[in-house]
């Protein structure tokens, strides 16, 4: 069983929902990334989503775009992300990590080489925003060969017929993009998300996690209540960048990450009043 499948089995047994923080590898600091991952796990992350910096992150809003730019300026590339993973796995064998990025760095490394190197460094899954199921055959062949999961997005614009196509190629979990737009945009409509998640469930038995538009504990709790997990991206990237840019040292950045994720964990677990 893959780490991700095991993770959701365990969560289900305990009646919990997945909390999945997203950070851009190398932001707000290259050396800080591994420490940040440990901190997020300690603060309650079930799975970590690690952004692979790309020069042209077409689906990202301004917050994560700037995260990619900062990471690239510091020299973080796909190869560096795999080094971060190797380091992380020296101390954590348990927490699943998925890489989220764009097609070209993976294409450039080559599907087979990417699969071998990513798996060897302890990566569990890949989410490439710009590789829809129609284009994924070659890549998926290699990911399956090494036993890595491929996470796919389903959007509010995805018709039922495409859900079957996506479910056929996907493994690990389904990532439901809760709104039309780029990362960090807009506000969530909980009822609409609930309806969409229910619709997706009729096409797949995979867990369904929801991202885009989750800003804080209450919005995370609202979405977690109608899905299997939540992804927190832009709000976290923004918070860490704010602390770093205000002159905060590594300890301050880690503390901010811990505070934010702990708060989200508590809300998702229902340990605080939803009126909070």
């Amino acid at each position: 069983m893959s780490r991700i499948a095991a993770c959701f089995t365990e969560l289900k047994a305990r009646g919990r929902k997945a909390v999945i923080p997203y950070i851009v590898a190398g932001d707000p600091g290259v050396e800080l990334t591994v420490e940040l991952m440990f901190t997020l796990v300690e603060a309650g992350a079930d799975i970590i989503e690690l952004g692979v910096p790309f020069s042209d992150p077409m689906s990202e809003g301004p917050v994560i775009q700037r995260g990619h730019e900062r990471a690239l300026e510091r020299g973080m590339r796909l190869r560096g992300v795999l080094e971060v993973m190797t380091e992380f796995r020296k101390h954590n064998e348990h927490t699943p990590v998925l890489l989220m990025g764009y097609a070209n760095p993976v294409e450039h490394m080559g599907h087979a080489q990417f699969a071998d190197r990513a798996f060897a460094s302890g990566v569990d899954a890949l989410l490439t925003v710009d590789i829809p199921p129609e284009e994924v055959a070659g890549l998926n062949h290699e990911l399956r060969r090494v036993g890595m999961d491929n996470i796919f997005l389903i959007a509010p614009t995805t018709p039922a017929a495409r859900m079957d196509l996506i479910a056929k190629e996907a493994s690990g979990f389904i990532y439901y993009v809760s709104l039309k737009g780029v990362t960090g945009a807009g506000n969530l409509d909980r009822e609409a998300v609930a309806r969409s998640v229910a619709e997706i469930r009729s096409h797949t038995s995979l867990p369904i996690c929801v991202g885009f538009g989750i800003k804080d504990g209450p919005s995370a709790a609202a979405v977690a209540a109608v899905s299997d997990g939540v992804v927190i991206g832009s709000a976290l990237v923004q918070r860490l960048a704010d602390v770093a840019q205000a002159g905060g040292d590594d300890a301050a950045v880690l503390a901010a990450a811990r505070d934010m994720l702990s708060d989200i964990r508590e809300h998702v677990d229902g340990n605080v009043s939803s009126a909070a």
């Binding site: 077409m58 710009d130 829809p132 129609e134 997005l153 959007a155 614009t157 996506i166 993009v177």
Partner: peptide, 10 residues
């Protein structure tokens, strides 16, 4: 080909 985010596929 069509290498775009899922939101645009339809």
């Amino acid at each position: 080909g069509k290498y775009v985010a899922e939101t645009l596929m339809s």
